[in-house]
Amino acid sequence: MSLNVVSLVSVGRHPQSGRARRADQDGRAVELGLKLVAKALSVVHVGDPDDPVLRQYAGMGLPSMTILKQDKSIDAVPILSQFLQQEKIDIVLTGVRAESGESSGMVPYLLAHALGWPVVARVADIVSVKDGEAQVLLALPRGQRRAVSVKLPFIASVDHAAEIARQSAFALGLRASIESVESVGEVDRIRVDWQESVAKSRPKRLKTVKAKTAAERFKAATAKPEGGTGKVMKNETPKEKARAIFDLLLEEKVIR
């Protein structure tokens, strides 16, 4: 049975120039999709079908793209969930973080909620799909990976640890057919009131490196941070585990 994979893409924003571009993680989502099903991949975007950035995605070798034509003020999630329900889809790939607007930050979660599918966050690779189950590698900090198996269908957000998006070829982008699909959407009421401003990175606490030798500096740069307060609970009963989480939340003042 052939796999039905959809990559959702957005219009990104270059961190230095602020110019519209192929979003980095969305590009990786297309790359992963191409790896899984090659040209059978469907790539979907909600927005303006005439946006030139879409050609940058198409330039990766997509014969066509589906654009659910909508105004900027429209909430993409209900349109997408409706579209995804119509087709028989196995895997939906998105980015982890938005580069502009709401592109992909919350989208996978909201879609999963609407469709009742699991979300696999921060995927580095989908190794294989067999008998309705996918072997997935999750990206963890410091180059670590966690292997999980997930039942189809599911939504995966693709981490920047995944394979980088291939070069976009000008002519392929030019020739791809952009299929514009009319859809009924509703205004995103929450977003209407938003004010956008430039993000400022949080000031970092200066770290005094006490290391004297290169080996020590290397260790300091690569070693896992030692929290010391964590605890691995494997053999406890579910109730005890839940209790531990609840206590931690209380302690960290997440719930009062």
Binding site: R21, G59, M60, G61, R166, Q167, S168, A169, F170, A171, L172
Partner: peptide
């Protein structure tokens, strides 16, 4: 190779992007 194939080697793709 670049405009039809998207196959500029090594740092080529990154530089062009």
């Amino acid at each position: 190779l670049t405009m039809e194939k998207g196959k500029t080697p090594n740092k080529g793709a990154e530089i062009l992007e």
